[in-house]
Computed example of a mutant assay.
Amino acid sequence: MLEIGNLSLRYGRHLALNQVSLRIAEGETVVILGANGAGKSSLLKAIAGLARTEAGSVVTLDGQSILGTKAHLIPEAGIALVPEGRGVFGDLTVEENLTLGANPKRARAGESSRHALIYDLFPRLAERKSQLVRTMSGGEQQMVAIGRALMSNPRFLMLDEPSLGLAPIVVTELFGALRRVKQTGVGLLLVEQNVSISLSISDRGYLMEAGRITGENSAEALRTDKAVQQAFLGGSAA
């Protein structure tokens, strides 16, 4: 279980997160819904050790605090982040990016089988394993970013706007792969503007506004909630 409690984060005088609390069980898929500026990306950065939180904040994995752990050690705990903007190494090949993802000690056993899984999830990467990533399309680079994160053998995979800027057909392919990742038992924590498709693969969701959690429910209940429909789904369930 990954649990966040009373998590607060400031950028100067701006309070980006205000006592946020949520949980995600192993193997569960949870989506965070909210407008731009709600604090969703800041939440993922705080969990990943990329932002300093306020006193009283709590982040635990199986009851053990990971708050204050250096960012490069968070993957050793079993948490991987696919950041907005992907963060791939453009001057390296697909294969080299994936190999770098397997750097954590927890990832070294089973590295070859995870390579095989990723190439099965994303056949285009298998075809282009020797290609420089900077020469690939945005969708292909996002596949590399997800594949590299999966190479770390995560228990929880966090994704920040994975569909941003991608064509609808690529988004469908990407979320089809995430459904298969979910079936392997990896927990997913999604921040995603494409609310309909993210709810379609999620078990639960949280609503976030101005740095606070303002609601929580099952994905199905959120899909049929009139307020959520009006705010995110164009006024009708999708």
Results as ranks from 00 to 15, higher is better:
105 K>D: 05
129 K>E: 02
146 I>M: 02
86 R>E: 08
115 H>P: 07
197 I>T: 09
94 V>E: 00
25 A>K: 13
43 L>C: 05
140 E>L: 11
112 S>I: 13
26 E>F: 10
56 G>Q: 09
48 A>N: 09
9 L>Q: 02
24 I>Q: 13
14 H>N: 08
72 H>K: 08
5 G>N: 09
161 E>D: 09
10 R>N: 07
126 A>F: 03
69 T>E: 08
197 I>D: 00
176 G>L: 14
15 L>Q: 14
165 G>E: 00
87 G>Q: 09
86 R>I: 15
213 I>W: 02
85 G>W: 01
77 A>C: 13
85 G>A: 08
147 G>L: 15
15 L>P: 08
106 R>C: 05
192 E>K: 14
97 N>V: 13
30 V>E: 01
38 A>T: 11
122 F>H: 02
183 Q>V: 08
34 G>A: 10
216 E>V: 13
137 S>T: 14
59 V>N: 04
175 F>P: 05
44 L>N: 02
210 A>P: 03
198 S>L: 12
64 Q>R: 13
209 E>K: 10
62 D>I: 15
84 E>P: 09
5 G>H: 11
176 G>P: 05
123 P>M: 09
68 G>F: 06
73 L>K: 15
103 N>L: 14
139 G>I: 15
39 G>C: 03
96 E>I: 15
113 S>P: 04
37 G>T: 03
134 R>T: 13
130 S>G: 04
220 E>L: 07
226 K>P: 08
93 T>L: 07
138 G>Q: 03
232 F>L: 11
58 V>E: 11
215 G>M: 05
37 G>Q: 03
187 G>I: 12
81 L>D: 00
218 S>I: 15
178 L>I: 14
215 G>R: 05
53 T>L: 11
188 L>V: 04
137 S>Y: 10
222 L>N: 00
113 S>H: 08
176 G>E: 02
118 I>E: 01
15 L>H: 12
64 Q>L: 15
201 I>M: 07
190 L>R: 04
119 Y>D: 00
232 F>P: 10
216 E>A: 14
193 Q>Y: 03
211 G>A: 05
26 E>W: 14
173 E>D: 11
51 A>V: 08
209 E>L: 05
162 P>R: 08
130 S>V: 10
79 I>Y: 00
238 A>N: 12
67 L>V: 10
42 S>K: 05
202 S>L: 06
7 L>Q: 04
200 S>V: 10
107 A>Y: 02
1 M>K: 12
102 A>P: 07
184 T>P: 03
127 E>C: 13
155 R>Y: 01
107 A>V: 15
76 E>P: 10
70 K>H: 14
19 Q>S: 11
208 M>V: 15
12 G>Q: 08
201 I>H: 09
51 A>K: 01
49 G>M: 06
198 S>N: 08
101 G>W: 07
15 L>W: 08
149 A>R: 10
193 Q>K: 07
196 S>W: 11
226 K>D: 12
23 R>T: 13
41 S>E: 09
42 S>F: 02
121 L>K: 14
227 A>K: 12
50 L>R: 12
10 R>V: 14
78 G>C: 13
66 I>W: 05
190 L>A: 07
187 G>T: 02
